[in-house]
Every structure is written in structure tokens, then in C-alpha cells.
Amino acid sequence: MKHRFNDAPRYTRLLVWLLLLIAAIGWAPLAAAAPNCTASSATLSFASTTISIPSNTSIGSTLATGTATMNFNCTGLSSTDTPATIQAGQYLATLDTTNNPGGPGITFATGVPGLAVLVTATPVQATSQSGNVNDGPTSTAGYVPGSVAYVGCTRRHCTATTSGTVSASYTATLIKTGPIAPGAIPQTNLIPFWWDIRGDGTYGTSKSLGASLILPAISLTAPSCSLTTGSQNIAVTLPAVPTASLSTAGNVTGRTAFNIAVTGCPTSAKSITTYFYSGATIDTASGNLRNSSGTAANVEVQLLNGAGGSAAALSAINLAGAQAQSQNSSQYNISGGAATMNYYAQYIASGAAATAGTVNTNVTFTIAYP
């Protein structure tokens, strides 16, 4: 019995050592994560990637605008680090001759003569300056969108490292710098992005984020004359007339004026013609419009050229035949990218005397210019 009592203290000491060892393992500090910043490329978004070249806009006019947002995420910053700095630049896309290094913004060439793209940014304005620490990587052309700093302790807790995000919003404006020809702007990486921790022996060298602000491919098309809203579907209402005014074949009455107007024509277009298409509503014998859905008999609608065109005023338009419209519809001059083509519609008795009823018909037209 005496021997067992003497061994008890030795077992107690072993248990204490084991608990201390377990506690020491539990208290061992974890290794801090290395600082790092990441980002993804962003493509500027335009309402359309096909743009019609305006015909009469002045130098400096805006053709289109696109926007994008870049997010830069930095992690693992400790109390020994200065802020992680986001850098934009060094390998900028080709700058336009109109670019101002001091901003506001950076003006890039598009590869299309007469067209440049100005990129501006918020909350820090983009510039293409170079030669000092606040420019792009290693003091090359660019600027600093922002930085993420170590936050440290708050009232409730302390953290060994800090994570944070910098966001930058971009607006790209396509600007006319001279005459523009149809063509295509290729997809272009405008601005590459980097990061560093300035003054740090390990992280003080600029590191590529592998992310860029991207201008998408954009097609530039030649402008075309556009019908005004009121000319896209024209309703010509002829007046009610007595049947006596159409008692003999060839009698005409109810002459009503209408016009077809266009805008936005290219400067190269000097004249324009309306083409009326032959179709089921055309009387191939008379060249007039049949009363296709009305109830009156022996009556058609005749179209005439109005004043201001190349044909004699009030000359009848023969709508019959595939090429008749080009021979009979008047040609009009374009001035300032716009033109108004004047026409008339009137009742004409066909065959015997017209009978009472309604007159409804239609014709399809298009416009053409050299």
C-alpha cells in the first residue's frame, strides 16, 4: 500500500505536462496570408456596336458613349504594409494626336481616321501623364485609380490582415476629329492595370493584374437618308365629292397634296427620288391605283408629281411596269441633308361614270439617292 501512495505524484506531473503541451499547440499563431490584389477585365458597353456616321456633324461632336466599371480587390494587408496601390497604364493603347497628357481623361486612337475615343474616370480622373510616382507603373504613362490600406483594430476586435476593394467607373466617348469613312474599330485593350506596395522590398515592384479596360469592336456604317416620322406611313385623305364630278372616263377631282420628307442624308447625296412599287393595287392599263377595298365603282386614284421636282409640276405618275416609277416620279434636290418631295393624289373616273361609295387603296414606296 505504501508503494502505490509514493507513485501518485509522478502520474500527476505527467498529466500536467501533457495538458501544457496541448495548450501550447492550441496557442500557436497561424501564418499570415501574403498580400495580393486581383481584378477582372471590363468591356465598355455601348447601346450598339454598329454606328451610323453622321453626315453633317461638326468636329468635336459625340457619336456614341459607352461605360464600364472595374473592381480591384486586395487581401492580406498587414500593419507593416503601406497601402496597396492600384496602377493604370504603362502599356496604354495608341494615343490620339488630340490627347492631352494632363487630362481630363485619355484620348486614344481608334484606327479609323477622323474618330478618337476619350476615356474619363471617377472617382479619380484618368490621365496619361508620365515621369513621377503618381503615374503608371515605374512612372510610365498612366494614373492611380485608388489604394487599399491596412485598417487595424476597431473597438470590438483586431485583425491581423485587411481586405478591401477599389472601384473605378469609366466612360468612353467616340469623338469626331475629322472626316470619317465607313470601316471598323477593332477590339482594343485600352488601359492595363497593376498593383504594388510602395517601399516594400517584396511587393514594391508593380505586378500585373492581368486585367484591362476594353473597347469592343465597333462597325461604322455610311449614313442613309431617313424618312421623318410622318412620312413612314402616310394617310392621304381625299375629300368627299359628288359622283357627277366623275361622270365621264378621265374626269378628275378631289386633288389633295401630300409629301414625303427625309433627313440625315450623307453630304455626298445631292438628289433623291421616290420609287412607287408596282403591285396588286396598280391598274397596269392606266398606271393608276385601283379602288382595292372601297365600294365605289369606276373610280381610281391617280398620283401626280408636285412642285419642286425635276418633272413638270402636276405631271401624272404612271405606276405600271417594273421600271415605270423611275421614269415618272420626280427627282428632288437634297439640301443640308434633308429633302421634301411633293406629290398629289386625286380621283379619276375609269371606264363609265363613277358610282357612290368609298375609295380605299394603297401603294408601297421607297427612296433612293446616288
Rank of each mutant, 00 (worst) to 15 (best):
V117E: 00
A28H: 14
S231H: 06
H3Q: 15
W194P: 11
L303W: 08
S41A: 11
P216S: 11
I22D: 04
G230M: 08
A320S: 11
Q331N: 13
P9S: 00
Q87R: 13
T110Y: 03
S330Y: 03
S58W: 07
G183M: 08
S268W: 03
A168H: 06
L19D: 05
V16W: 12
G66S: 04
S268Y: 08
R10M: 09
A339K: 10
M1D: 10
T253W: 06
S286L: 13
A121D: 02
Y343N: 09
I282W: 02
N56P: 01
F258C: 12
A354H: 14
Q125S: 10
N298E: 07
A181V: 14
T364L: 07
A269G: 05
S326K: 09
S139Y: 03
V262K: 04
A42H: 01
P145H: 04
Y347I: 08
L246A: 04
P186V: 10
I348F: 02
N134Y: 14
S41L: 12
A64F: 11
S130K: 15
A8T: 10
G152F: 11
S315Y: 03
N298Q: 11
I175E: 00
Y150K: 05
G351A: 12
T253V: 15
A222I: 03
A316E: 00
W195S: 03
P242V: 02
D135K: 10
G279S: 06
Y277I: 06
L77R: 05
I180W: 12
L21Q: 07
A307S: 15
G146K: 07
T165D: 05
T49L: 10
A285E: 14
R4K: 06
V359D: 09
P54R: 10
I234S: 07
G306T: 04
W27P: 00
D135M: 07
N259G: 13
T237I: 01
D96P: 09
A296I: 07
F365M: 13
I86D: 03
L77K: 02
T248F: 03
A313P: 04
P182E: 09
P83N: 12
A93Q: 01
